[in-house]
Design a protein around this nucleic acid. Structure first.
Length: 209
DNA sequence: TACGGGATCTGT
DNA sequence: CAGATCCCGTAA
């Protein structure tokens, strides 16, 4: 039988302003279906919000071919290429017509996905298992996410979907065993003062504590 | 059509 | 702290 947490998060739950959704997504699970036999689950431990009026948002100026999915309804993926070599995964949020998204910045993986990490250009040392998805680019490399996965619905018959916090994670956050920390976002040249980054304090997978 | 910057990561 | 590496937004 299906465990309760295998139900995908519904688009309605994501149809709120991204600065509300981003902290709520911390502690939720991102699921990557690679093929019929392989599924990767990662605990979301770090997110950032991007919203209208925000100079760091890709949709700040206007609608373009790249950012057009951000203008659509919540519950879709928005993947883009950065620095010619890394991909970043966003969750589209808020009402249809309001361009906003949540960047998934880091995952805590239960185990190293077989044959995927640490990527094509493998290094001498294998990085710490808990840091294979510690950062938006590393996360996409670990889960084999590229531009072909942009504009996809987050549903269980799709390559990617989200699941709500487990009872255990809820308990740990409520009891403040995990503190949800709010800070400024990383890697920006504009909007650097807006505190729209959240992470689980104490998680070894956070990109920059 | 041309140009240059970017929500990153790694090794020095 | 520099380099890799390429898509895409902007200007011309």
């Amino acid at each position: 039988m299906e465990p309760a947490y295998s139900q995908a998060i519904a688009p309605d739950w994501l149809a709120r302003p991204s600065p509300e959704v981003a902290p709520d997504l911390v502690g939720c699970t991102l699921v990557r279906r690679l093929d019929a036999h392989r599924t990767i689950r990662g605990l979301i431990v770090e997110t950032e919000a991007y919203a209208p009026g925000d100079p760091a948002c890709h949709a700040y100026r206007r609608r373009t071919p790249r950012n057009t999915v951000m203008f659509g309804p919540a519950g879709m993926t928005y993947v883009y290429l950065i620095y010619g070599m890394y991909h970043c995964l966003n969750i589209v949020t808020d009402q249809d017509g309001i361009p906003s998204a949540v960047l998934i910045r880091a995952l805590q993986l239960p185990q190293v996905p077989d044959g995927l990490a640490p990527g094509v250009g493998s290094k001498k040392k294998t990085s710490h298992p808990n840091r294979i998805a510690a950062g938006p680019g590393k996360l996409c490399r670990a889960l084999d996410i590229d531009l072909s996965l942009t504009g996809r619905a987050l549903l269980t018959d799709e390559p990617l979907w989200l699941e709500h916090r487990s009872e255990e994670v809820c308990r740990q956050i409520e009891q403040q065993r995990f503190a949800l920390v709010q800070t400024t976002r990383i890697g920006l040249s504009q909007g650097t003062e807006i505190p729209w980054r959240w992470y689980l304090q104490g998680s070894p997978a956070v990109s920059r504590p």
